[in-house]
Amino acid sequence: MIKFENLAISFGKLNVLKGINASFDAGKIICIIGPNGSGKTTMIKCLLGMTIPNSGRILFDGKPIVGEELYRKEIGYMPQIGRYPDNMTIGQIIAMMKDLRNEVTQLDETIFEQFQIQAMLQKKMRTLSGGTTQKVSAGLAFLFNPKVLVLDEPTAGLDPSAAEILKQKILKAKQDGKLVLITSHIMSEIDEMADEILYMQEGNVLFHKNIEQLKAETGQTKLGRAILKTINPVVA
């Protein structure tokens, strides 16, 4: 469904992505992990067209995304740190997004209901805590029922019950045949949800494997140890 081909990006002298190849299929949850600054967020921003690659291309349903925008109808994006016009209220933001998208698709407002956002519609964005902002971001990502969900550290900053609600929602999305791309640092959470792991290091893909295969190859039952053993067999 989504394919990265030799994607390379540099910001000035800094090579952030050094020729990434990867492909992702529908109906799977794929976790992108790696150390801070390894290029995970940049990779996601490329997929969304927010960052423009120096070379290589990204195919969405077989079509290159360069200069296109309609493919983004099929993507729900939850940023790591959601930034919203801070003098607007939650209600105004949601209404504006609906108005701008103006789509006939069935809206999915379950997240807003479960997070009880409805009770906070009058609150201004600048008065919200980080966690509440994350809840709004999550709700917006799922709102238009997209085929692909791109979630950049979705549970970071959420309270435990909200994180659980979001996890259930992600698993449900997978059952509905959607593709979910997640970046995360929380191993237990990845172990619970992910089907595949893509490990990034210094702008390269170190490996991209099925989670069961990874555990079998390393003979580990815990995902964290399995990954450690793959990237550094001596330490593990």
Binding site: L48, G49, M50, E69, L70, Y71, R72, K73, I75, Y77, P79, R83, Y84, P85, D86, M97, L100, R101
Partner: peptide, 16 residues
């Protein structure tokens, strides 16, 4: 000041 607004729109199916 509208950089947040622009960033929000960028992830939507709206051309630059």
């Amino acid at each position: 000041n509208s950089s947040e607004f622009i960033e929000l729109l960028m992830a939507q199916p709206i051309s630059r």
